[in-house]
Design a protein around this nucleic acid. Sequence first.
DNA 1: CAGCATCCCGGCCGATACTG
DNA 2: CAGTATCGGCCGGGATGCTG
Lengths: 139, 139
Amino acid sequence: MSVGHTQVTASAEPVVSCGGEHEDCGIREVLDRIGDKWSVLVIVELAQGVRRFRQLQRAVPGISQRMLTLTVRRLERDGLVSRTVYPTVPPQVEYELTPTGHSLTHLVKALADWSAAHREGIAASRRAWDAAHPDAGIR
Amino acid sequence: MSVGHTQVTASAEPVVSCGGEHEDCGIREVLDRIGDKWSVLVIVELAQGVRRFRQLQRAVPGISQRMLTLTVRRLERDGLVSRTVYPTVPPQVEYELTPTGHSLTHLVKALADWSAAHREGIAASRRAWDAAHPDAGIR
DNA sequence: CAGCATCCCGGCCGATACTG
DNA sequence: CAGTATCGGCCGGGATGCTG
């Protein structure tokens, strides 16, 4: 953390101005789509390649089959994931990222990178804040 | 949308592999932090410069003062936003992005860009899916 | 102006049981 | 294996009212 003598003037260059408007950009739409508990994790796993239902569930620890179904269904509806059913017995279903879905992985990588870069500092900030505010309802 | 003859082999180059592990990267941590309903919007507004409480509330349409308080408190706790109180009367409080918070704006911009680029295609995919699945509990 | 306290509802998500 | 159906808890977040 080098937050000492940095002369970053945040207010100088507006990186995100929503195109000049103070409106909600499409940001909320993306977050409504991948901001839920499981979508990104499923996407990360599918970024590795084609996966079957059970494979996905094992790869994403803690997800219930219900949530996996819902998550993968929503991603399919949004055109981020393709679903292929092979009429075999027992049934076999394969999930794969579409080109659009694949383009999301770059975004996810950016998120992961940012997280890795600031995880420490944020954790420290939290500890400091919690120490300074013994009785806070925020946690 | 040019999703015609693209030969993007998603499974060829794993963009996000969490560093070789199939673990949860820090992605969920970022999303737990900015994936909520208001954080990004507040950040976007603060990216423009220093803002006071009321200013923020007016700039972010629809946010309640309760949620603005909680949001800004959490951001402060994580060290993304600084809070400066001027002991005047009436009280005056200024919020500003910290360097760490400012670094987030690049990420937010990436989100906005992706959203703008795929909004159309996703909406179309949804319409198609909904049409193909008249009675779906997913909506 | 800048908050905090309280009430309350909707939906996200987990657990469990059942089907083709 | 790959789902669907149902129930229920938790909590994010809106509405309202009160303080310094």
